[in-house]
Nucleic acid binder design. Structure first.
Length: 200
DNA sequence: TGTCCGATTGGT
DNA sequence: CCAATCGGACAG
């Protein structure tokens, strides 16, 4: 196991679909305030390709205080608040002013599982991080990490498991029925048969 | 300033 | 199936 942070050029690649797919198997690390590592292996992710993609917050070049981090350099965190109670964690990709991002939809708990159980009201382990809102609770991801650099020391990604191409599935993204023809694009990627992939 | 609604979740 | 819960986006 390596503990080297993914380099900038992993994130700045031009094809957000490739980055989303390649994020599967990577370790998402968010140390708590005592420096203890809490982490999960990414098992599900979705690509959002603004400005063309109607499902993306950056659709049509929308650029507001909320979406500003999407316009940053690849390797920036974009954390937004939705439904009045949940945060969602995204990895910004591509170069400055190209607002592409990957929503992390599920991870498999790896380090700090006791802490995750505490934060998630002692739910069974398979239910701790199997959804974009749930994993933000388990990893304590919130507004404070919005716009943060993934090569910094508050949140980052590391190389971990190599996922064979044959085990990577793809299909339509979740919860974007408003996105017209964009809703059917197979831009959601997940690891086949992994028990920590979200239900829907 | 007012209204509408969401890249979800948990309970009925 | 549906309520929770509130900030963002946009119309006026």
């Amino acid at each position: 196991m390596s503990s080297i942070k993914l380099p900038r050029d992993f994130y700045t690649r031009p094809n957000v679909l490739h980055v989303a797919r390649d994020l599967l198997g990577k370790l998402l690390v968010v140390p708590n305030r005592n420096g203890k590592r809490v982490s999960g292996r990414i098992v599900e992710a979705e690509a959002y390709r603004g400005p063309q993609d109607r499902a993306a917050h950056s659709y049509g070049g929308r650029r507001t205080r909320r979406t500003e981090p999407m316009y940053g350099v690849g390797g920036t965190a974009y954390v937004f608040f939705v439904y009045g109670m949940y945060y969602q964690f995204n990895v910004v990709t591509n170069v400055v002013d190209t607002p592409h991002a990957v929503l992390i939809r599920a991870v498999e708990p790896v380090e700090g599982i006791e802490l995750m159980r505490k934060r998630r009201s002692s739910q069974p382990d398979h239910n701790l991080t199997n959804g974009p809102g749930k994993l933000c609770i388990a990893l304590e991801i919130d507004r404070r990490l919005d716009g943060d650099d993934l090569l910094g020391n508050k949140v980052w990604l590391e190389e971990d498991a190599k996922i064979p191409r044959a085990r990577i599935m793809s299909g339509p993204r979740i919860g974007i029925d408003y996105a017209a023809e964009w809703k059917d694009k197979p831009w959601r990627f997940w690891i086949k048969d992994n028990p920590y992939v979200s239900k829907h």
